[in-house]
Amino acid sequence: MIEIVSTRHNEMIDPLLHVWGWEIPVYLFLGGWVAGMMIIAGYFLFKGRAKAEWCSCLVLPTISLIFLSLGMLALFLDLEHKLYVWRLYTTFEIASPMSWGAWILLLVYPGLLANMIIRIPPFLAKPFPRLKSFSAMVNEHPVAIKTIGVINMLLGGMLGIYTGILLSSLGARPFWNSSILGFLFLVSGLSTAAAFVHMVAKDRYERELLAKADNAFLTIELFVLGLFLIGLLTATEVHQRAAHLVLGGEYTAFFWVIVVFMGIVIPLIYQSLAVNHKVPHLMLMPILVIWGGLMLRFVIVVAGQHSHWAQF
C-alpha cells in the first residue's frame, strides 16, 4: 500500500495534467486533414489531372488554405502569451517539433498557393487580374505542375507526420511516447481527406478512387493503431500503464466505440460493400470517418496528458 499526498495544486497540472483543451486536438486534426488533402491534390497534379474538367486538385488547395488557417487560429487561441507569437519566427529550434511545425507551416502556405496558381479561383482572379497571365505561364510547363504536385505531396507528408511527432516527442507522456504516432496521424489525415474528397468530388472517377483509397487508409490506420498499442504494451511498465488508459482504463469506451468502431470499422465495412456495389454509397460514412479522425485526436491528446511516469 502506497499513500501519496502532494501539496501541489497548480492549475492545468493538478490533479492531472490538462494543458491542452479543444484547441490542440482541433489543430492537429485540421493539420492532418490538410496534409491528406495536399497529398491527394498533389497526386492528382502529378497524374496530370489538372487539365481535367473537374479535378479535386483544383478546389482542395483553397479548402486546405482555409482549414489550415482555422487550425492555426486554434493553435493561436491556445497560446497563453499571444502577443509574443512572433517569437516563433525569430529562431529555428532544431530539437523542437513545434519549431519545425511553425516553419513547415510557413512552407505549406506557398505550396498551397503554388497549387492555386494552376487554376486561379475566381475570388482571386477578379481582384488580381495579373495572376491569370501568371497562371497561364505556369500551365505552359507540365513539369512545373508535376513539381508543384510532388512538392505538395512532400509538404503534406511532412505536415501530417509533424502533427504526430509534436506529441510523440513529449516523452514525459508515455501514451504519446511512440514513433508510430506520426504515421498514425498521417494515415488518419489521409483517410479523413479521402473521405472528404469522396464526399465532395464532382468527378465519378475521383469519387470511386477515393472511396477505395479511403478503405485502404482506414485498413492501414487500424493496423497502425494496433501497432501503436502493441508498441506501448511491449515497452516499459510505465508505457503499459499508459496503454491501459484505453485498454480497461478511463478512455476505453470512448476509444473503442467512438474512434475505432464508429470512426473506422463501420465505415470500412460499409464502404467495402459500397465500392463492390453491394450497397449504395452513403454520405454518413465519410462523415463518420471525418468525425472519427477528430475524435482520435481528442482521445490521444487527452489520454496522453493523463499518462505519466510516476510510479504510483
Binding site: 497540472i13 495534467l17 494543458v19 491542452w20 497563453e80 499571444k82 516563433l88 523542437s96 513529449l170 496528458q305
Partner: peptide, 8 residues
C-alpha cells in the same frame, strides 16, 4: 509564447 509544450 505560452504554448505549454514544456509543461507537457
Amino acid at each position: 509564447i505560452g504554448c505549454k509544450a514544456c509543461l507537457a
